[in-house]
Design a protein around this nucleic acid. Structure first.
Length: 967
RNA sequence: GCUGGGAUGGCGGAAUUGGUAUACGCGCUAGUUUUAGGAACUAGUGCCGCAAGGCUUGAGGGUUCGAGUCCCUCUCCCAGCACCA
């Protein structure tokens, strides 16, 4: 037997496969269905790390499996080659980003080849090549044509280190996602993509995708749809204002002032609380503030606040949660619900970019408004009272019964000397709460409360302390009275004077026990009951009531439910129901060199025109100084300006910005299908053959960037009739991270970086592939530490497979282990289909363990094992396969088949349990009847001491698993 | 705070979806081989206990003949979003 020389074997077969064009994929193969497995194409950093191996070599197992199963399986690779690192390297080394990038790509191709993956290199794509970016530009122009691209001045995120604008998605915790520098806010014009137009579809279509919930939730979250109302508040100017426009503006509607006076449009999701709106707040950047400035009495104060806000960076603003603001003195707003005059403030807790940049503040029902109102002593008016509707369980309202309304009291009673509270434990339905009772017609609530407390507890002398200044409402089923109740509770707080107590009526004693509960245990004691818990909180930890409920202090809307009132009130005050999104349009302008040039030229009047298709690709200039100067590098390119004038005429100027690299990656997968097409981005036939992508495996970091952008891109392409599908990725699975052996993220500074090249050299690519597949289930966002011993373990496994050669019996086609063989074939296939490569490998190990115990190994077992292992360890299995005399590659052989009948053992061991505890084990053959098994079980000697002379209640028999004797 | 995902030996992880918890691998222990070494081989290895036996899937409760798995309450960890009206 030759030694297992991984190095020699791997190099040999990589060369051979290339020569044979083994991994070339045609668009159509007769009798085969296409299957497209995609992984994110790579940035050519020039150094392939363990993360790349995990990202590319493990999905390769799946793609190879699909291929052996008879699919025409495509698994392509390419380079996402534009981007800042190349430019930064160029600045540092004084090189050309292009030269640098192509050098790195060469290095990476060599490293990628060492994986032994089934990449079809003839389909390789490179996003920085003119043949590629021509189509990026072409699509940009199509989008422009259809109003999906526009130029606008907006507040932009500026990274001072990278000297460029960033999209909102590229700002993480107020810092640049790439370099970590704190991001500044600037006003600047840039090219925008109308992704917000697709906000609803981007949310709604998530439902039809087989994607992990974590991505769906994060995208929904990011898009941030919220449904609410837009309501206008008219503005008026107070009597003390020196610029008071008219003496009788008290009733502005009469005077038609709304036509001349500005109004403030606010966004709220809680129109039902409008009667509690006691002031308005504008974002400091709100355009109306500027307009009103002339009529504001404390102008300088307001201006100072605005400029202070501007000075704050995104980071500062996120960090300081202490609310600040300034009143716009002399300006008032009219609450359209009750015509009340309310003050107008500016404060930076209101964001200009969300909703309308203005809110109505309802301090009684909003935590932030409450905090602000407290600080500046603004009025608070409660307009919603809580309503609890019990559903299900013993106290849930019964559908069939009518609701009986009752005035009622809840009494929280404190002990006279100890720190304890009086609670009742009801016997009929296990309900635990405070003293509760009805108020008689015309009875005072405090009197009623004392009366109920006496009746239910026997205690006699109460001091009334305080009362909750609002009611709480509750719908429940009254177990004792057999009635659906709709109770309106007054909530009272008493302190017991002394321990004087009369005996309870027998009736009351039957109903409930009286118990004293310590202060800090009350919350958990009453926790089964939402409203009791709410009451306790209301006394011990008063907070604004945020929830929905029943309206009060709201004129004719009193008694209405919040849900209903939202729409009714909005309509009544002339507002409208709207949807608002957190998502902003996608700004793609980058003030850098190494990106796709934006194919726009400006005429002498400064108007923008797209570069016509015949001039695409609109090439990157080559005469550029990369030293950062705060100006886009293109601006200094003589070549680009000359080219523009030559083609378009004198005075015409080029756009000097490049595109965000996320544009390049929004459509890259189409180019794999037809990488050399000069007429279009991808031919129709090729697209029809491969799209949509069956499986997309990638990193979790792309959730709200690449994956969101490319979903938008494909939907836009779909709407323009350029592609058939409006979602590109049918199944998406996120992968986790490989951590250093110490459990931390690999980093040079921590010194825990594993260099895959070194391990490939020492143990082989097959071992690395197998180890990464074995480390844990794939396609879930779980991080696994690299275990240097673990790699050796799988290497050991490969060596043991290798050694099996010496035990082969070339005649033998039937073995004792055949049942296990068929089980293994079945199990490995199923596991790979679920991306559980770890258990697939475990099953092969179990099979190997069994084979090693045999004197001789049948040739059929060995051949099947090699085929199962082929996607995992393509080189070694190929070597062993050919050693058997095969002329054709193992990777062209079909996936092994199994016989279902053989996957079941003839005899199985089942557990014999007594009261669910395992006491014995018996062997049972498939044909045995339940009665036979029972008798066999009872005959087990160890059972005697358990079952002798005891009555057997029942026997549970689960064929193939256990028999349970219940005594 | 909201949303999503988690918690099983010393470690990575298994568990036919309600049926013998801890498969497989690592590590560890003992032995074999070897001049030696271990990236070799063999056996053992959840915890407590001499044993019989008992205990064990973050904590507590429930349903069930039977719960890692289902239901309720809670704790902690990871990720995304967060003054979003």
């Amino acid at each position: 037997m030759k030694e297992y020389d991984h190095s020699k074997i791997e190099k040999k077969w990589q060369k051979e496969w290339e020569k044979e064009k083994l991994y070339r994929v045609e668009d159509k193969v007769k009798g085969k269905e296409n299957y497209f497995t995609l992984v994110e194409f790579t940035y050519p950093s020039g150094n392939l790390h363990v993360g790349h191996w995990y990202a590319f070599s493990v999905p390769d197992i799946f793609a190879r499996f699909q291929r052996m199963r008879g699919y025409n399986s495509l698994y392509p690779m390419g380079f996402d080659a534009f981007g800042l690192p190349a430019e930064n390297a160029a600045i540092k080394l004084g090189a050309d980003p292009k030269v640098w990038t192509f050098e790195q790509m060469d290095k990476m191709r060599t490293q990628l080849r060492s994986m032994g993956a089934m990449f079809d290199w003839e389909r390789e794509i490179v996003s920085c090549e003119p043949e590629y970016y021509k189509w990026t530009q072409w699509m940009f122009n199509k989008f422009l044509e259809h109003d999906l691209v526009y130029r606008a001045a907006t507040k932009v995120n500026w990274c001072p280190k990278d000297q460029t604008i960033l999209a909102n998605e590229q700002v993480v915790d107020g810092c640049c996602e790439r370099c970590g520098a704190p991001v500044e806010q600037r006003d600047q014009e840039q090219w925008m993509l109308r992704i917000t137009k697709y906000a609803d579809r981007l949310i709604d279509d998530l439902d039809k995708l087989d994607w992990p919930e974590e991505i769906k939730a994060a995208q929904r979250n990011w898009i941030g749809r919220s449904e609410g109302s837009e309501i206008s508040f008219r503005i008026t100017f107070s009597a003390s204002s020196s610029l008071r426009p008219s003496p009788s503006e008290r009733d502005p509607r009469e005077l038609g002032i709304e036509k001349t006076n500005p109004s403030i449009k606010i966004f709220t999701t809680r129109a039902d609380t409008i009667f509690g709106a006691t002031y308005l707040v504008l974002a400091p950047e709100h355009p109306l503030v500027g307009e009103l400035l002339g009529r504001i009495e404390n102008k300088s104060e307001v201006e100072k606040y605005i400029s202070d806000t501007k000075k704050k960076s995104e980071l500062d603003r996120q960090q300081s949660k202490e609310k600040t603001g300034v009143e716009l003195k002399g300006v008032k707003a009219i609450n359209p619900a009750n015509n009340e005059e309310i003050p107008v403030w500016i404060a930076d807790y209101v964001l200009s970019g969300y909703g309308t940049g203005a809110i109505m503040a309802v301090p009684a029902h909003d935590e932030r408004d409450s905090e602000f109102a407290k600080k500046y002593s603004l009025p608070v008016r409660r307009v919603v009272e809580p309503l609890f509707i019990k559903k299900g369980g013993s106290d849930g309202v019964k559908e069939s019964l009518p609701l009986v309304e009752r005035k009622a009291v809840v009494c929280v009673v404190e002990h006279w000397s100890e720190n304890k509270f009086l609670c009742l434990a009801w016997k009929a339905n296990d309900w635990k709460g405070f003293v509760v009772g009805g108020i008689e017609e015309g009875e005072d609530e405090i009197v009623a409360g004392e009366r109920e407390a006496r009746e239910e507890t026997g205690y006699q002398n109460f001091d009334f302390i305080k009362k909750l200044d609002y009611k709480i409402h509750s719908q429940f089923y009254h177990e004792v009275k057999k009635q659906n109740r709709y109770a309106h509770f007054e909530v009272l707080y008493f302190k017991l004077k002394d321990g004087e107590r009369k005996d309870l009526a027998e009736e009351e004693n039957k109903l409930h026990d009286v118990v004293w509960i310590e202060r800090d245990k009350v919350d958990s004691y009453v926790s089964a009951d939402e409203d009791m818990q709410f009451i306790w909180e209301a006394f011990t930890n008063p907070k604004p009531f945020i929830g929905e409920g029943i309206l009060v202090n709201s004129g004719k809307y009193d008694g209405m439910l919040s849900v209903e009132a939202k729409e009714k009130i909005t309509k009544a005050v002339g507002g409208k129901m709207v949807k608002t999104y957190r998502l902003r349009d996608w700004g793609i302008s980058r003030q850098r060199y190494w990106g796709c040039p934006i194919p726009i030229v400006y005429d002498p009047a400064g108007k923008a025109h797209p570069v016509p298709e015949e001039h695409l690709p609109w090439l990157l200039p080559s005469d550029v100084d990369h030293t950062p100067s705060g100006v886009a590098p293109f601006a200094k390119s003589k070549e680009l300006f000359a080219r523009t004038e030559k083609i378009f005429g004198k005075g015409w100027k080029p756009e000097v910005e490049t595109m965000d690299t996320f544009v390049d990656s929004s459509w890259y997968f189409y180019r794999y299908l037809d990488p050399k097409n000069g007429k279009t981005f991808a031919g129709e036939e090729e697209r029809k053959a491969w799209m949509p992508i069956d499986l997309y495996m990638g990193g979790a970091e792309h959730t709200t960037m690449h994956l969101l952008y490319s979903r938008f891109w494909v939907k836009a392409m779909h709407d323009l009739g350029l592609v058939d599908e409006d979602e590109a990725y049918v199944i998406r699975r996120n992968r986790g991270l490989i951590l250093g052996p110490d459990g931390n993220k690999m980093s040079k500074s921590k010194g825990n970086v594993i260099n895959p090249d070194e391990i490939v050299e020492r143990l082989g690519a097959d071992t690395v592939r197998l180890y990464l597949a074995f480390i844990g289930p794939y396609g879930v966002t779980v991080n696994y530490p690299w275990d240097p011993n673990g790699v050796v373990g799988v290497r050991r496994f490969l060596e043991r497979v290798w050694r099996l050669q010496t035990k082969l019996d070339l005649q033998k086609n039937k073995c004792r282990t055949d049942s296990l063989l068929h089980k293994t074939i079945k199990g490995v296939g199923e596991d790979i289909g679920l991306f559980k490569f770890n258990t697939a490998i475990a099953k092969m190990m179990i099979f190997l363990n069994a084979l090693e115990k045999e004197e001789k190994v049948g040739i059929h077992s060995f051949r099947n094992l090699l085929a199962l292992l082929a996607p995992f360890a393509p080189h070694m299995t190929e070597e062993l396969w050919r050693e058997l005399g095969e002329k054709q590659s193992i990777h062209l052989s079909p996936w092994p088949e199994y016989d279902e009948a053989l996957t079941h053992d003839e005899k199985v061991k089942i557990a014999v349990q007594v009261n669910s505890r395992v006491r014995a084990e018996i062997a049972v053959s498939a044909g045995e009847s339940e009665e036979e098994v029972k008798q066999k079980a009872m005959a087990e000697p160890v059972l005697a001491k358990y079952v002798k002379g005891v009555k057997i209640k029942k026997i549970v028999y689960i064929p193939g698993r256990l028999i349970n004797i219940v005594i």
